[in-house]
Amino acid sequence: MNICVIGNSHVAAIKQAYDLMAARGDIPAMTFFANRGDNVAKMVVKNGILKPAKENHRLQAAIEITSGGIKEIDPQKYDFILVLGLGRAISELTAMVLRPISAGAKERAIQDFWEASVAFELIEKLRLITKKTIFFGLAPLTAAKEDGPETDDTYREMLALSQTLFFDAIDVSIVRQPPATITHGGNTKSEYARDSQRLDVQGGAATGAHPIGENRHMNAAYGEAWLEGFFAALT
């Protein structure tokens, strides 16, 4: 099994975990195509291929480095596609679900949020060139200041609404953040935010840890928990 992973800075935790898990045992092959920020969604479709635009040298370099030398994405070479992390403010969207507003307003907000998302911008392009299964792994919830009980009720409601109101129509399956990593209904446990690493788009070793207090990017332990959940869902 070969999985194409396209994403942003949140790919770093998954890649770190993937390397650790691959060294330990037999897991599906993953090829990563990533860049920091939203740039990866700016790839263009040409002849059934997704690739950086000619003038986008920064994205070209990032794609080549993160994939280990591959310059473009041909969906035919992979069994599945995993879009990872693109789309900010998942915590804010989750919190919105708790507001005392009408079901209609809530549904409208979910649809509008995803329609304007960078993830959808990329998925739309992918759907032009492939009917293969696309998974969408959401960016992690913001880490809590202090851990509390392990609950994910609000997050689950947000996911269910997002899946049924938006992603079902474009045949995309959301991959959820593992329940064990969630606290306070809609936060990532703080332990998973410690020592998170930046996405390496310059080649060589990882380009270092995020600053202390960073609460949006997660570490390799989070990546492992996420991948275990993802692989379990695949089988």
Binding site: E92, L93, R108, I110, D112
Partner: peptide, 13 residues
């Protein structure tokens, strides 16, 4: 305003 909702829909709501 409801987080996530587009500007146009915020107005209509």
């Amino acid at each position: 305003p409801v987080f996530g909702m587009s500007k146009a829909n915020l107005t209509s709501y």
